[in-house]
Amino acid sequence: MLYYVLYALRDYISPFNVFRYITFRTAVAIITAMGITFLLAPETIKFLKRISLTQQIRSDGPQTHLTKAGTPTMGGVLIVISTAVSILLWGNLSNRHVWILLISTICFSAIGFWDDFLKVSKRNTKGLRAKYKFGLQIGVALAIAVAQYLNVSDPYSTSLIVPFFKKWLFDFGIFYVPFSVFVIVGSSNAVNLTDGLDGLASGLVAIAVFATGVLVYISGHAGLAQYLQVIYINGIGELTVCCGAIFGASLGFLWYNTHPAEVFMGDVGSLGLGGALGTLATLTKHEIVLVVVGGIFVIETISVILQVGSFKLTGKRIFRMAPIHHHFELKGWLEPKTVVRFWIIGFMLALLSLATIKLR
């Protein structure tokens, strides 16, 4: 909203012309999201403690986690609020891609909020039943996928771009809809599985969305896209502002979520952030790159699948505990060391995803 007001003043005060640039608004969106988080976090944490919305710790998990009992959860509302406000302030709201991403983030966060609320308000429940949880996620993802499929103005709406190759893509046609649903729902739950250590998910999301933002900006810039031989998608560059908002919100939340965490994001944060990353990937046609930039999320998910599959088939476990970050904890890695090492790997994967730009 402020974007429209301030940019309209350019005819009277020339410096306001700077608001036309996506890079400038992205920087402002980062600062805004971080500022809102810092402003709201202290009182939000106190409020969550006061109404006893605190994390319940599994007795069969790492024993070092038992000290976390009583830590406020559902702090992900801070990320959602700061992201949404920042986007509404600095994004071009006439761009349909911005609305798709914003609605996706809010809807997935709402599912997570419901799940979290059931967990903390009824101590004898495991939250929202799986069939309802996945059903709602699939429903939201399906609506997003159909909206993209029906976008006749986008010639690549049903295409899958293969990185490392110059404009090599496959047109899935109607089958892109279920593929898109798989990517979005899978991304949402992958981030959710990763959210098990202080600062792990929020830090990795910040890294992933920063790298994604660079790719999005290039895809939406006609000159850069042509120079780097990347598929140009008209209007997609505006999502760079959204990436900036998510990045700023994640960093702001990380201030309070780093070890020892003052607040956990809960499913309201992890499902929302994961849904946002998945939606970004499908909107920008970077689904395969998402596997690279979000490699830790993928590894965490695969570790759970392998663990469950192995136990059901053979009665034996592959890892000491899944997701895999708990495996390393039980091997003796301290929690902060585990988190930082996973961040380092995430950063390396982000650099690799950016390298796909030149290796074409």
Score class of each variant (00 low, 15 high):
F328V: 06
Y3Q: 11
N95G: 04
G173S: 00
P323F: 14
G76E: 07
Y232W: 09
A276P: 04
L200E: 03
S157N: 12
I144M: 08
T83G: 03
P323C: 08
I30M: 05
I87K: 04
V340E: 04
Q307T: 05
F311Y: 12
V263E: 01
Q148M: 10
V80M: 07
T356G: 02
C107E: 13
L283T: 02
L160D: 03
K119N: 08
T64W: 15
L352D: 07
F179V: 06
G75M: 02
P178T: 01
L200N: 00
E43L: 13
G252V: 00
V177R: 10
G248F: 00
F164K: 09
I236D: 03
V230Q: 12
S94F: 09
S159P: 08
H325G: 01
L330S: 01
I144V: 04
E300W: 08
I45F: 06
T284Y: 10
T105S: 13
G199I: 02
S187C: 03
I87C: 08
L359K: 03
V241H: 05
F319H: 02
Q55D: 09
P260W: 10
V308R: 07
V85F: 09
M348K: 12
A69W: 11
L254K: 04
S153D: 12
L93P: 02
L193F: 13
M34P: 12
G223C: 13
R341H: 07
P62I: 02
G186C: 04
N189R: 01
I344C: 05
I184W: 00
Y4G: 09
F347A: 13
C243M: 00
N92M: 08
Y256E: 13
Q226T: 15
G127T: 14
G213C: 00
T26L: 15
K119H: 09
L254H: 07
L118M: 10
V339M: 12
P178E: 11
A27S: 08
A190S: 12
F108I: 02
M321A: 00
L93D: 14
P15S: 05
I81P: 03
K68Y: 01
S202E: 06
G35I: 14
P323D: 15
N95F: 03
D60Y: 14
A222K: 12
V289S: 06
G309Q: 09
S180I: 11
Q307W: 08
M74L: 13
K312S: 10
G315W: 12
V241L: 10
G294I: 00
G220H: 15
G266V: 06
F311T: 15
A261I: 01
V304L: 08
A225K: 01
A206F: 06
V181E: 08
K166Y: 15
A33D: 07
A276D: 01
G61M: 06
L197H: 08
F182M: 14
V293M: 11
M1C: 05
G199M: 07
D171R: 04
Y217I: 09
A276L: 02
A33S: 15
I231K: 13
S59Q: 09
A206E: 03
V340R: 12
